[in-house]
Design a protein around this nucleic acid. Structure first.
Ligand code: SF4
Ligand code: SF4
Lengths: 163, 163
DNA sequence: TTATTGCAGATAAAATTTATCCGTGATAAG
DNA sequence: CTTATCACGGATAAATTTTATCTGCAATAA
């Protein structure tokens, strides 16, 4: 029940990409350096995001990544499910059908039990809560809340690596 | 982002214990046999539940476990947090404070950022949803929905191991 | 053509989860 | 009082997953 911290990296990368001007891209190496994380491993996460259509890739020199959709169309849930996989966090092993008191082929096993139903319901409310937060919402708030010096530093840094 | 299946075992054990008559207990071995899972490993989970005050232990011959609280006072959340630990599933590494564009000791880092806030909010709705389902609710529904033959079989089995 | 970049797959290292074992203390039954 | 049964904590081992890196190949801008 722990979320990999590559999810955190992926969210930060997507947020940064979402704030870039149209047509501008950043390479995996730049993104890794910007966030201070290991490049080859971050690259894997970016590839996953690419496979799931969240980011778009530009190959060749001066290539890199852009956001593939509009920022208001990418939610935290999209990123989490892409990196972590979209399987349910609760996998039921149907242990009610094991053990000495179980019946064989009883119709009552067709219905999913309450335990599994409750676990899945909880996961659904978690997911829909995450889906409410879009990248567009995040960058708006960053602009409002961030320290202006940091914004400047960040913009200068980005300008140095983009045409 | 996967929940250990010992959580599933623990929930089943607690539900079974919740349905037992007052004062009656089942040993770890019995519980393992009933559910068809390995005894030494299930025993570990039961010890954890015991530490967290969810089940009560009776030592000595004919000892075992009882539910420590009223069934309407134990929720799925209690069991999940006991087995999985109560740490948040999203651990923020403050990577905004790393990398070449970060400021040193800026006051703007004091406030938790929106990403972390959204992740924690989602976990909270997940938890409160799980907290809604109490063991009492589960056993009521089991009585209504279960196959009568299975109930009989189960009761006979329990009677054989309890006075 | 050349240098740069993403990508898939293989691989290696590290950490975590899963599972078992043993010695100790508690206690009910004989 | 003795004995057998059971929970418990700690140590340990096996298996699996996560984390991280490397390599060769395709794409492409200059
Ligand atoms: S009773 Fe529910 S949780 Fe248990 S095994 Fe069956 S479906 Fe899964
Ligand atoms: S910006 Fe938010 S998610 Fe990222 S490191 Fe800081 S607190 Fe964590």
């Amino acid at each position: 029940m722990k979320i990999s911290n590559t999810v955190e990296w992926a969210i930060h990368c997507c947020t940064l990409l979402a704030g870039l001007p149209k047509g501008v891209n950043l390479s995996a190496k730049d993104l890794a350096e910007y966030h201070g994380v290991p490049h080859p491993y971050l690259a894997k996460a970016l590839q996953t995001l690419s496979n799931d259509g969240i980011v778009k890739t530009i190959s060749g020199p001066k290539g890199g990544y852009q956001l593939a959709k509009e920022p208001n169309n990418v939610s935290l849930l999209d990123i989490v499910l892409s990196i972590e996989g979209s399987d349910s966090c609760f996998e039921c092993e149907e242990i009610r059908q094991q053990g000495p008191t179980a019946l064989k082929r009883s119709a009552s096993y067709k219905r999913p039990c309450l335990i599994a139903a409750a676990m899945w319901k909880a996961e659904n409310v978690w997911r829909s809560e995450l889906d409410k937060t879009k990248l567009s919402h995040l960058i708006e708030q960053v602009i409002i809340e961030a320290d202006p010096r940091q914004m400047k530093k960040s913009q200068d840094w980005i300008e140095k690596r983009t045409p």
